[in-house]
Nucleic acid binder design. Structure first.
Lengths: 198, 198
DNA sequence: CGCTCCCTGTCTCGACTGGGACGGCGCCGG
DNA sequence: CCGGCGCCGTCCCAGTCGAGACAGGGAGCG
């Protein structure tokens, strides 16, 4: 299900469903959205929804996964600032769809999506750490929680600072934990941009 | 062709084509829009376009006709302010789609659409005048030209006044011609809102 | 408890659509 | 003059979609 398809109708149906789901989540919150409401907004039949997705959860997951893939591919891994740029790109993405993420992660949000997001972020960072740590896998999970909680705070407070700044702050906090756990030196951009005001 | 259909797919196809055409006209101007570009933007096949419309001209006509029908039904004919309210509703509609109408009526626009608009407006006003005038049918045509030219001026000057005001001004100018031609008294709202500043 | 109501997820069949090909036309450059 | 190119308008067939019905479940209510 949901394999890449060349058929224009399939791509159009999925696009309309994605847009309708985002709009409805922003309006009502995720758990008040029904499949029928999505398909009605999208001008698509309920049958077509189930032909493409198992349920509304899978649709959200796919939207998020595609966004993560886009963010992931947004920056190459080579240059020294690549990690900073990646986090900025990620927070820019959250900024762009902030109403969606606020609805998914905030007070009206569903716990499973925050867990899904932590899981995705943990998978994103895990390859960068050696598996021979004292407690393998702990660091990526805790790091992901730091970023997700930063996002929740940022969204709940109506994004009081630019995406780039919250990205840097979060990365600095995470960097301290990484240095503690691995002995690695602090991030380059932390050295260039010390803890004071920007 | 283009009969009212209950099938959701037909309504969706037409809705997507309308939106795509409007977006493309605003971007490129009407005569630089091809059917292929419309269908590509709308995520619809070219075949589906021709199943629903004869050509791009008919699509624009239908968009305009539906808008006119909506404006026409927006106000009942009974109350004394109904005519003013109708013109305000019409100019509000033009205001809402001002980029579309600017592209259709302005310098890059096509002459046939201005003619189509004059024709529609003339048909709208014709029933209100007796057919026993010295030159039957002249008055509605000239009136429609007044309104269309008012819209062109308004759009070409980036809508310097609110829609309600340009509606009233145009209706006052038209009212003078009506009084001249028929001997009818000036419009009620003209008496209540004399020619000075508002 | 029963009853209602709404939503889910699945299925069938007729209807509409997409892909692709076709000939035709107008335009442009050689 | 010719040929290339892009767009138009039409056609066919396989594939997808919409309408509607269905059983099942869960929440609210008397």
């Amino acid at each position: 299900m949901s394999q890449p398809t060349g058929d224009l109708r399939v791509r159009r149906t999925r696009k309309l469903l994605r847009e309708a789901l985002i709009a409805l989540i922003e309006e009502r919150g995720f758990d008040r959205v029904t499949v029928g409401a999505i398909t009605e907004r999208a001008m698509v039949s309920r049958a077509a929804f189930y032909r493409n997705y198992r349920d509304k959860y899978q649709l959200v997951e796919q939207i998020f996964d595609e966004a993560m893939a886009e963010v992931r591919g947004h920056v190459a891994d080579g240059d020294p600032d690549s990690r900073r740029a990646r986090w900025v790109a990620f927070f820019d993405h959250v900024d762009e769809y902030h109403r969606l993420y606020a609805a998914l992660l905030g007070a009206r949000g569903s716990a499973w999506f925050a867990a899904r997001m932590r899981s995705a972020l943990a998978e994103l960072t895990a390859p960068h750490f050696a598996p021979d740590a004292p407690v393998p896998g702990l660091l990526p999970s805790v790091l992901s929680a730091v970023f997700v909680e930063s996002i929740v705070w940022w969204l709940d407070h109506d994004r009081p600072v630019p995406a780039a700044e919250i990205a840097d702050r979060s990365a600095d906090l995470a960097g301290a934990m990484i240095t503690e756990a691995t002995g690695w030196p602090p991030r380059p951009w932390s050295r260039r941009r010390p803890a004071g005001k920007k």
